[in-house]
Amino acid sequence: MGSTALSYDTWHADAAREPAMEEGHRPLWRHFIETIPETDLSTREVLDFGCNRGGFLRLLHALKPFRRGLGVDIAQASIAAARSLAGVVPVAYEAASDLTAWPDSFDIAFSYEVIYLLPDLAAHAAGMHAALRRGGVYYAVTGCHTENPLWPAWRDFIGGRTNAPVQDRSPDDYAAAFVAAGLEVSVRRFGYDGFVPVPKDRGYYPKLTDALDYSAVSKLLFRCVRRDP
């Protein structure tokens, strides 16, 4: 197991809101899974970094079954929930803040709206490079960056709702960290084009078009490949 020195119970300061957050992410996770070009994961070892309650891996296995999966998160109560919800899906969940315990272990890795919370992005990128097998791919999604028009307001709004520290980074900052770690990096807009629920909480989206533009335009999908010489 990796270090748990940096840990908390749940991402959300109000733990009761975690299940609703997971449910709200589900259509976006489905789009994420359908967007990646890999179609057959039946022989793949899969990682979800920042897995929270484990919902992404459960959905991934339902849509694109994989051989084995691991979810890691520093939120202790969330990991406990993920274990209780795992069912028969071939996954394990560990409380960890880094990937040093799993060198050369994964064929494909995912993170969804996690990297903007990491205090040391360079260490994360290096750890992900080491955890991937040669030819392995890491997909990282985030819309929390300084080129998102909503970010100036979100910085404080999200910071007041989460137990994790919020970081200020641009898309170029993310790409530079992955490139410096030796990963081959490409990026696209997340491009979600499904129905977006009308927000009841206008703290995130003051206007309805903000909700549409965030998931379609501001949210980015990075593809990082380990290609050793």
Rank of each mutant, 00 (worst) to 15 (best):
H145Y: 00
V185N: 02
D172C: 05
S215F: 14
E34T: 09
S170H: 07
G69F: 01
P206C: 07
T162M: 09
L85N: 08
S42M: 01
G50K: 04
D120V: 11
V72G: 01
F190L: 07
L60N: 03
A16G: 12
L150M: 15
E34F: 04
Y116E: 08
K207E: 15
L41N: 12
Y138Q: 04
S97V: 01
S3K: 10
A62M: 12
P229T: 14
L63R: 01
G127Q: 11
S7R: 12
N52S: 10
C224M: 10
A211C: 13
Y205W: 12
A211I: 09
A211D: 12
V198E: 15
S3G: 13
M128S: 07
E147W: 14
I108Q: 01
P229S: 14
E23F: 06
A77R: 14
G136R: 01
L47S: 02
R155K: 15
D172S: 14
G127K: 06
L118C: 09
P103F: 10
V137Q: 01
L118K: 10
S186P: 09
R202S: 07
I108R: 00
R53K: 10
S42D: 06
D168M: 09
Y116K: 00
S7P: 01
L220N: 05
W29Y: 14
L220S: 03
N148Y: 00
H31V: 04
N163M: 14
